[in-house]
Design a protein around this nucleic acid. Structure first.
Lengths: 332, 332
DNA sequence: AACGTTGGCGTCAACGTTGACGTCAACGAT
DNA sequence: ATCGTTGACGTCAACGTTGACGCCAACGTT
């Protein structure tokens, strides 16, 4: 035959109904051992494989999950995608991937595309101002795991790192190293309510009292180049800067490079702390001190949360808050 | 209604048949302007969206493409995935992604999963010894773009960089810098017939004659750690090594780190050339001299080749060979 | 007036699988 | 012998959409 075998072909070969073949394929029971052997032999001979498209039309389950992020070239992401895909594969699922460039319109387009293809659920790093669309899809019945944000809606679970604590750890580390004139670089696309790192950092400074000056703040894109620009902005606000906390490692690396370019030694003249702990951070000189976000842990928790949503939807879910830790290297 | 609207719902609201609604949705013609307006209004009101699963069951087209690679944490890959996804999105397609860990059994599993979900085509970085399975899927009718290898089969097109030329450029660069005792690090998973870089490198040395010694070779995993191990292997074969060409940038960075750890200065004592041109290569010290593989170009060519296969399958395709260039920085 | 053409519809039967329910022979209990 | 139960099947009708083909009124040509 010049087309792929179907249940009907297998059934025809064995002399049973397609329904019976479906029972064997799906291990449903309700067939004799003899029938089972014959069906499996025919499956092998005809190279039958279930058509997941036809199956999805009936069961509304496609065996796929979607991963929606900002930009895949952010090194944090591929490691996470590998983790998520590994766990999804264990559950017999195939992964869609789409990046949104942190644009809510593109995220809406991606979610629409996934919804139209009956994905079993999605793991989303939300774009700015996209809670409404996430809530909408949750209400429509799409299981959604939101990462690094809080959305309360049916079928939505949240998994996030304790980023305020990360900010506090960074602040305390810089203070204990004797830094007194500090700055924080936050993400350009983050609204104030999502600047957890900055909030924790500033809170820790306030708690500590002491002789440090009030910290200055800047914004930057999540790239090395962004970090260079963020450094320049901080410096213009506080020329005798001696400590920096950046919201991700690429930005921190950029700040380090800009510091070096301006004749300041890291960490002698200025200490830098990042947040992520990407591999690159161990290879640059000096090696970056950073707040480690455990991607393996995040992958596991996100996929587990999605599995729970898929199996038992429309149940109330408490956010899962993952701990962070400071990894002290050379830059601070 | 507590379920998503279908063509039937829209048809019922307007008072036409579902087929007519389908004609409007798909811009097929064969309807009056008045009918079109009514249908579009009803679509808006009912928030109708085509069910891509149902559509795929009939048309055998799902509007999805699959990307199959080794490991997403290889920095070359995410940049490529962004490019491919961007181009796919322009064509209204959604991207599956799966990594295989360069394992042919996992690649077979991935292809089976994609095939069962009626992907329109796949772009594959082949795992070792996987030509047979690729040929098999090509014969079954799956459009396949193979990257960095050559597979001749129906429905298969190949896109690859001129890696032998990359090897030659690296060799000539090192020679012109006065290096005379050189080594090449190839991929552990590459069979001899796929060591294009090494072959080009050695060929250029043979052509050049001169007073350089025959190069030594080593194998390494595609990571910084792999590069450190590869460097050690080369060094054991040639203790007065003064030039290295690595098959990717991470390996080159690892070699640089190992050289520094052994007290050798890069490039003074030992010059290092990589291949890829990942972003990290510009940020490490010294910045890496490398053979640049243009990912934007590769994404475009791969997606274009896949589009051609999808639109006109079972046609003979000449491999697309992309040029490479040497980017001279500080390490060589 | 008759005939051929054609636009704007509609009908029908898939596509491959599965949920809901039906049939029937074999078996144990009475 | 009769009856109720049950395992091992089978039948039927979706699921939502589309390809193939049919119908019919309107129109132009003869």
């Amino acid at each position: 035959m010049d087309r792929e075998a179907t249940l009907h072909d297998v059934a025809g070969k064995v002399g049973v109904s397609p329904r019976t073949v479906s029972r064997v394929v799906n291990d449903e029971g309700g067939y004799s051992p003899e029938t089972r052997k014959k069906v499996l032999a025919a499956i092998e001979e005809l190279r039958y494989r279930p058509n997941m498209v036809a199956r999805a039309l009936i069961t509304k389950r496609s065996g796929t999950v979607g991963l929606v992020g900002g930009d895949m070239t952010d090194p944090f992401f591929p490691a996470l995608a590998e983790g998520i895909q590994h766990r999804a594969r264990e559950a017999g699922q195939t992964m869609f991937f789409a990046s949104t460039g942190s644009d809510p319109d593109r995220q809406a387009e991606v979610l629409r595309s996934f919804w139209a293809r009956a994905v079993d659920g999605v793991i989303v790093f939300p774009a700015l101002d996209s809670i409404d669309q996430l809530t909408d899809y949750g209400r429509r019945g799409l299981p959604i795991v939101v990462v690094d944000d809080l959305v309360e809606a049916p079928n939505v679970a949240c998994v996030l790192f304790d980023l305020p604590e990360g900010g506090r750890l960074a602040a305390r580390h810089l203070l204990s190293a004797g830094r007194r004139r500090m700055g924080v670089i936050s993400a350009t696309v983050s609204p104030p309510r999502r600047r957890h790192r900055e909030r924790g950092f500033l809170a820790a400074l306030t708690e500590a009292r002491g002789d440090h000056l009030p910290a200055v703040t800047a914004e930057a894109d999540p790239t090395v180049r962004g970090g260079e620009a963020g450094f320049a902005e901080l410096l213009s606000l506080m020329p005798d800067l001696d400590g920096i906390f950046a919201y991700n490692d690429l930005v921190a690396i950029g700040a380090m490079r800009a510091a070096a370019a301006s004749g300041r030694r890291v960490p002698d003249d200025i200490a830098v702390v990042g947040c992520d702990d990407i591999e690159m951070s161990t290879y640059i000189t000096p090696a970056l001190t950073t707040i480690r976000l455990d991607r393996g842990r995040l992958s596991n928790e996100a996929v587990a949360a999605l599995g729970d949503l898929i199996d038992a939807p429309a149940q109330r879910r408490q956010p899962v808050v993952l701990p962070v830790e400071l990894v002290a290297r050379e830059s601070a």
